[in-house]
Nucleic acid binder design. Structure first.
Lengths: 229, 229
DNA sequence: TCATCAACGGTACTGAGTACCGTCTCAAAG
DNA sequence: CTTTGAGACGGTACTCAGTACCGTTGATGA
């Protein structure tokens, strides 16, 4: 039974020292010394002092990219909603480690900014995927892709942070519910594209007027196929 | 007619050198020397090398905060949509400077991350404002606030980036249109709260069925005031 | 036994950011 | 006119992150 690997010892030492003295008060020298390793070895395993806390964002990003590339969902938004679950599951899999990281990022501005930048990369990936999938270079479509990507990311982060704070017992169920909420925000426009569509778009209304008084207008709507507003 | 202030000379020197050699290839010493000032003076005016590019995010954030605090709009989302225009107008007011900054942030990862972190602070402000305004501690409301804030920020960034890239002739009109799109995503639930409401919510629908066949269901809707879905 | 290769340690360097101190100028107060 | 105090600036010296380079060790296999 050999000692834990250098990378693990360094990470353990780093978290321990961050807890004891705080992030800024801990130098890379301190971490290496605590781990019984040299400073050079630290940077061989982690690109930066921050990276010891965020180990595998790159790997996870690739995982998401692959998932999206091989996904076969009915809409881009569903595909992205599905892919983002991987991120949540990854954090949950980390368990206590993720919570310790959250405690740090909550206090240290530098780390918080780094975390936010990582999230932005996911969001960008989502946006590009959705835009490609729609294949519509319109300005409106572009904005829509941006809004969708932002909503998925926001919903995910919302659930993730709740779980990190210990406010969520079943984050997987919550993220599914949150994604349904996002899907409700963006009713699928597919059904409107053709002329001979089968689907029906249902709209509820309430008014002070008697229903019969509205019938002429309703009849015109149905006959002309015009959409008000 | 005196020389321009130290802060301005430093910023000019910084942008010039960033253009000539690139951001990483320029040291603070270089900037100070070009400006005919000492290194210490640079850090007296700008907290960091990055800060010389992003001068007044803090001030702008306060401006937004004030605007929100004194706003009297019908809904939180409208108030935020209004406030975010200030950000856009600020960038437009900067003109060419904003575009030079964009050129830099597009190339240098460090600067891009910093810019993203700034945007996140606006988004956080929006989220907190909306959550406070709603005064509903429910999980669903919290998620909704998060989605709203993210959507407003995303819509704003979309228009801003288009303008920065020179793709938008009238960014103010575009941001107004984008905000209308965001408002459409979140239909106001205000009208549903009371019993004796006056307003009418209109919904259009289309179906293969004959209108008369739907009448019974419609009558029930109107009478019971129930909401389908 | 020898060659190879990977992991590690050490030294020295660059550059950002901080602390501290000294200088100069200008303006108000004496 | 002199003094005092404040503000802007310059310089030196320091800490620490991150990089480059080189030398050492140790295991493995031909």
């Amino acid at each position: 039974m050999s000692r834990p690997s250098a990378a693990i010892r360094l990470a353990d030492a780093a978290f321990a020292l961050f807890d004891e003295r705080g992030y800024e008060q801990t130098t890379v020298d301190d971490i290496a010394e605590r781990a019984g390793l040299g400073r050079t070895t630290f940077f061989r395993h982690y690109r930066s002092k921050e990276a010891v806390i965020f180990p595998d964002h790159d790997r996870l990003l690739e995982l998401i990219r692959d998932r999206l590339a091989t996904s076969s969902h009915s809409t881009a938004l569903v595909a992205v909603s599905d892919a983002v679950r991987l991120v949540l599951l990854h954090y949950i899999d980390e368990g206590e480690l993720a919570r310790r990281r959250y405690a740090l990022t909550s206090k240290v501005a530098t780390l918080r900014d780094r975390e936010i930048a990582s999230v932005a990369r996911y969001q960008r990936l989502f946006r590009e995927f959705i835009a490609d999938w729609m294949g519509d270079p319109t300005e409106a479509a572009s904005l829509r892709a941006e809004l969708m990507a932002a909503s998925v990311a926001a919903a995910h982060n919302h659930v993730l942070r709740r779980w990190l704070r210990g406010e969520s017992a079943d984050p997987v169920a919550e993220v599914d519910e949150a994604m349904r909420e996002v899907l409700r925000l963006f009713p699928t426009p597919d059904a409107r594209s053709g002329e001979d569509q089968q689907g029906s778009t249902v709209v509820a209304f309430r008014t002070g007027q008697d229903l019969d008084a509205l019938l002429p207008a309703l009849r015109r709507l149905v006959e002309d196929g015009q959409r008000p507003l």
